[in-house]
């Protein structure tokens, strides 16, 4: 039985009491129970959000550390490229100085 079904049943009982002209402490208690149930029903709307605690987001902290290492490799590769370019430029000069024609 859902909260809504319980509430409906209690409200029917309440209505029967009113129709019968009953106005005693029991009826008042029933009304209070209904009130509490209505309040609880407002909470039930948001209950599925409690499941969020079980939703685990993957730990990505390692990615940050590894990205730093990749950046280091990028910097190293750029340094290697600069060195290669310098070596080739020097080699070209030496070859030209030796009288070997090279394309521009």
């Amino acid at each position: 039985m859902t909260l809504q079904e319980i509430l409906d049943t209690l409200q029917n009982t309440m209505q029967q009491l009113e129709d019968a002209g009953v106005n005693d402490t029991n009826k008042h208690d029933l009304r209070r129970v209904i009130t509490r149930l209505k309040i609880a029903l407002e909470g039930a709307i948001f209950d599925p959000l409690r499941e969020l605690d079980s939703v685990q987001v993957p730990d990505t902290s390692q990615l940050k550390a590894l990205a730093v290492q990749v950046q280091q490799e990028i910097d190293n590769e750029k340094a290697r490229v600069a060195l290669v370019q310098k070596l080739v430029a020097v080699s070209k000069k030496v070859i030209r100085a030796a009288g070997v024609p090279l394309p521009v």
Binding site: T60, L63, V70, E73, K78
Partner: peptide
């Protein structure tokens, strides 16, 4: 965002002209 940043970093490396390629 962390996954994307890591992917971007990998892409930076992939797009990089490597020393042997330059040579």
């Amino acid at each position: 965002q962390n996954i994307l940043d890591a992917q971007q970093k990998l892409d930076d490396y992939i797009q990089l002209e490597k020393a042997d390629e330059v040579l």
